[in-house]
Amino acid sequence: MAENICFFAFAGLTLLAACTVVFARQPLYSVLSLLVVMFSLAALFVMLGAYLVAALQVLLYAGAVLVLFLFVMMLLNLEPEALARMRLFTLRGAGLVVGLAIALLLIAIVRRGGLAGTWQAAEGTVESLGTVLLRYYVLPFELTSFLILAAIIGAVSLAKIKHH
């Protein structure tokens, strides 16, 4: 029963915060709302036994990525977004309709799939996840370091381009 309450509470919070991210006019509100999304998702991860992932979620997303966003926003001194011009309403409306359609379709697929099976034990502790990661996924794991290196070099070189 407590699990139910927890799930619905965090799920509600996630959705609410996500909506705020999307529809807030102030960029700063969006970022802060995204922070809420991250935290409540981390809670859901804990409920699913993914402890390490939850920790990473907080550390990486909330701690690093969103802070980066905040820095950039402050750097660029963003204005509140102006209202969309008329002729783009159609595009926006289409986006809304398509988004809803995709949500409905996905839900329909989930319902048809009959995926209400029982949970199994999958404790994502540091030890168990580390074992899997370094035993079966060593090569992708190492490759991610190259990806990050490339991203760093790319970001630096992009940021160094001078205005002409």
Binding site: L15, A18, C19, V21, L96, I102, L106, I107
Partner: peptide, 10 residues
């Protein structure tokens, strides 16, 4: 799915 759709709409 709902979260995904919200992101998409955004």
């Amino acid at each position: 799915a709902l979260l995904f759709a919200i992101g998409l709409i955004g």
